[in-house]
C-alpha cells in the first residue's frame, strides 16, 4: 500500500516536471523568436518588410555592406562615430558627477543632505522630457544648437542631470564600513584623500557599472537626440538613424538594413550589459566581504 503511494507520488512529480519543462521551452521560444528573427532578416536578400515565411529564402551579407557604404541618404558610419564620441564624453562626465554626489550623500553629513535627497526624489517624478523643449531653448540661448556644437549640446544633455542618479552608488558606498575611513582620519588623511585613495579603489564594481550605464544611454535614447538635432542629419545619432529607416519613405529600401544596424549595435550593448550585470550583482552585495 505504502509503496504504491510513493510510486504514484513519484509519477505525479515526474509529469509535473515534464510539463514545467515543456512550458519553459515554449516560453523561451516566444522570447527568443523575435531576436532570432532580427538576425535572420539582417541576412535576407529581398528588400522590404513584407514577409510571409519565417525563414528567408535567400541569404546575403549585402545589407551589412549597404549599411556601411550607401551613405547618400542615411549615413550610418557617421552616425556611429557621432554616437561613439558623444557617449565617451557623456560617460566620463556623468560617472564623475554620480560618484561625487553619491559619495557626499553617503559619507558627508551636512545640513542640506536630507533636503537634497528629497528634492532628487521629487525631480525624478517629473516626466523626463517634459522639460525637453525648454532644454532646447536654453541650449539655443547659450548658442549650442547649431553646427558641430550639437554634439556638445547632446553631451551636456545626457550628463548634465546625471548627478540625480546617485541612489545605487550611494547604496554601495553605504556598505563600505566607516571604520576604514576613521582609521585613515586618525592617520591624518583629509576627506579628499579618503575619497580618492580609499573609497574609489574599493568601488571598482560600482564605478564600472556607472561608466557603462552612462556609456549606453546615448545609444538608446532617441527622443532628446531628435529634438536637439532637428533636421541636421550630419549630427544624427544611431538611434535616430534606425528610427528613420522605418519611416514611410525609407522603409522599403532600408528595412533589412535596419535589422542589420540593430544587430550591429546590439552586440556591443549586450556584451556591456552582461558585464554590468555581473558588476551590479557584485556591487549590491557589498564592497568588503566578511
Amino acid at each position: 500500500m505504502k509503496k504504491s503511494n510513493t510510486t504514484l507520488y513519484r509519477a505525479r512529480k515526474n509529469t509535473v516536471n515534464v510539463l514545467i519543462h515543456i512550458l519553459l521551452a515554449v516560453l523561451c521560444t516566444i522570447w527568443v523568436l523575435p531576436i532570432a528573427w532580427i538576425v535572420l532578416i539582417s541576412f535576407k536578400a529581398k528588400d522590404g518588410p513584407y514577409m510571409d515565411t519565417l525563414i528567408p529564402a535567400e541569404f546575403t551579407i549585402d545589407n551589412y555592406v549597404k549599411l556601411f557604404t550607401d551613405t547618400g541618404v542615411l549615413n550610418f558610419p557617421r552616425m556611429f562615430m557621432n554616437t561613439l564620441i558623444i557617449s565617451i564624453f557623456t560617460c566620463i562626465i556623468s560617472a564623475f558627477f554620480v560618484l561625487a554626489v553619491s559619495y557626499c550623500m553617503s559619507r558627508m553629513r551636512f545640513r542640506m543632505r536630507k533636503p537634497m535627497m528629497n528634492i532628487a526624489l521629487i525631480l525624478g517624478m517629473f516626466p523626463s522630457f517634459m522639460s525637453m523643449v525648454a532644454v532646447y531653448y536654453i541650449l539655443k540661448a547659450i548658442g549650442l544648437s547649431e553646427g558641430s556644437l550639437i554634439r556638445v549640446a547632446l553631451v551636456l544633455v545626457y550628463s548634465g542631470g546625471a548627478g540625480l542618479g546617485f541612489y545605487i552608488a550611494k547604496g554601495f558606498f553605504d556598505t563600505i564600513p566607516k571604520t576604514i575611513d576613521e582609521a585613515a582620519y586618525i592617520d591624518g588623511a583629509t576627506r579628499f584623500q579618503v575619497f580618492t585613495r580609499i573609497t574609489i579603489p574599493l568601488s571598482r564594481p560600482i564605478i564600472v557599472y556607472t561608466l557603462l550605464q552612462a556609456f549606453m544611454s546615448p545609444w538608446l535614447d532617441f527622443v532628446f537626440a531628435k529634438v536637439i538635432c532637428r533636421a541636421d542629419a550630419r549630427y544624427y545619432t544611431v538611434s535616430i538613424g534606425l528610427w528613420n529607416m522605418l519611416e514611410k519613405e525609407y522603409v522599403h529600401q532600408w528595412f533589412n538594413c535596419f535589422t542589420a544596424g540593430a544587430v550591429i549595435i546590439s552586440i556591443p550593448i549586450s556584451i556591456l550589459f552582461m558585464i554590468t550585470q555581473n558588476f551590479y550583482r557584485e556591487g549590491v552585495s557589498g564592497a568588503v566581504k566578511g
Binding site: V32, P34, I35, I38, L220, S239, L242, W243, A262
Partner: peptide, 14 residues
C-alpha cells in the same frame, strides 16, 4: 535575458 540585451527601441519597433 537575451531580450534584455537588445536595445529596447529596436525590439519595440520590430
Amino acid at each position: 535575458m537575451l531580450s534584455v540585451a537588445v536595445p529596447q527601441f529596436v525590439s519595440l519597433l520590430l
